[in-house]
Design a protein around this nucleic acid. Structure first.
Lengths: 161, 161
DNA sequence: ATCCGTGCAAAGTGTTTGCAGCGTT
DNA sequence: AACGCTGCAAACACTTTGCACGGAT
C-alpha cells in the first residue's frame, strides 16, 4: 500500500507534476477505498475529513490527472455520476463488474478472461487495445431471493382476496 | 425493418402504452440509424425534422420507455452524454465496441464471445445475467498511421534545428 | 518573477420534473 | 370524467471554467 503510493508519487514526478497535500490526500483516500467505486463527490467528502479546506474543483482536477496517469479509470455505471476505479498495480487487466439492477450493488470479479480476445482484435481489426471494460447487469443472489419471497407474498394475498 | 417496427409496436401495446406519432417517429429514426450511436440530442434533432413540434422532454421520455422495453440500450462512452443502441432483434447478444481514444470513432463488432462467460458467472457467482457490455478502448488503424506520420515529421524538424 | 496549483463562485451541460392543456376512451 | 401523453420552462445534478491568490522554484 505504501509501495503503491510511492509508485504513484513517482509517476506524478516523472511527468512534472507536483505532489501537493491535496493530491496526496486524494490518492490516500483512493487507496484506502480500493474496493469501492467512489464518485467524485464521495472522494471529496472523504478527503475533506482529512483536509477540510479542499474544494470540489480540486478533487475533479486531481481525479482527471490520475486518470491521465492511468492510476485510476473513470467508469460509469449509469447512475448519473462518474466513478473512479483504482487500477491494478502492474497488471494490464482491469476487473470486471457484476451490477445488480435491483439493489445497485456492484461486485467485482478479477478473472482474466479477455486477453485472448484482445489479441484477436489486434489481429483481425488492426485495433490496438489499451483498455477494456466488461460489465454484466443482472440480478444478484440476494435480490433474487427477495424477489421470490415477494412474489410468494403477493400470490398469498391474491388467493385471500 | 417494417418487421422490426411492428415487433416494437406490439411490445408497446402489450405493456399498455400507446403508439403516439412522437413515439412512432422516434422509433423510426432509431431504426434508420441502427448503426450509429445516437445521443438524446441527436435523436431529438432527427425527429424534429419529421415532427417539428416535439420537445426534448418527450424524446427523453420515449427513450426511457424504449430502454425499459429493452428495445434500446443506454450506453455511455464517456463523452458526457448517454447514447442509445438499438438491440438486436431476437438475439440476446449485444454487440461490442472498439472505441478509439484519439478520434472518438466507435466501431462495432458482432462476435458472440461472452455466452460461455455468462454461464460461468451464473454458476460461480449465483448472479443472473440479463445484459452485458464489452467495450475496448485503444487506437484505431487510421489514428495509428497518423500518429506515426506526425512523429516522423517531428523528428525531421528536430534534426533540422 | 514566473509558474503551478488552489479555492471559490459562476457558468455549462445533459437530464428530469411540475404543470397546464389536449385527445382518447 | 378520467387518464395517458405532450410541450414548455424551470429545476436539477454533475462537471468545468475563469480568476485572483498563494507558495514553491
Amino acid at each position: 500500500m505504501t509501495e503503491q503510493l510511492n509508485r504513484i508519487k513517482e509517476r506524478l514526478k516523472s511527468k512534472g507534476y507536483k505532489l501537493t497535500p491535496q493530491r496526496e490526500t486524494t490518492i490516500r483516500v483512493l487507496l484506502q477505498h480500493e474496493k469501492d467505486h467512489l464518485s467524485a463527490e464521495e472522494v471529496f467528502l472523504l478527503v475533506k475529513e482529512q483536509f477540510p479546506e479542499i474544494g470540489m474543483a480540486t478533487v475533479y482536477r486531481v481525479l482527471d490527472l490520475l486518470t491521465e496517469l492511468h492510476v485510476v479509470q473513470k467508469v460509469n455505471f449509469g447512475d448519473g455520476a462518474a466513478r473512479f476505479d483504482l487500477r491494478q498495480a502492474n497488471s494490464p487487466h482491469l476487473h470486471h463488474h457484476l451490477i445488480c439492477t435491483e439493489c445497485g450493488n456492484v461486485e467485482e470479479i478479477m478473472d482474466d478472461w479477455l486477453l485472448p480476445l484482445e489479441k484477436r482484435i489486434e489481429r483481425e481489426y488492426g485495433f490496438t487495445v489499451t483498455d477494456h471494460r466488461l460489465d454484466f447487469q443482472g440480478i444478484c443472489t440476494e435480490c433474487r431471493v427477495k424477489e421470490r419471497d415477494k412474489n410468494k407474498a403477493n400470490n398469498k394475498c391474491k388467493a385471500v382476496s
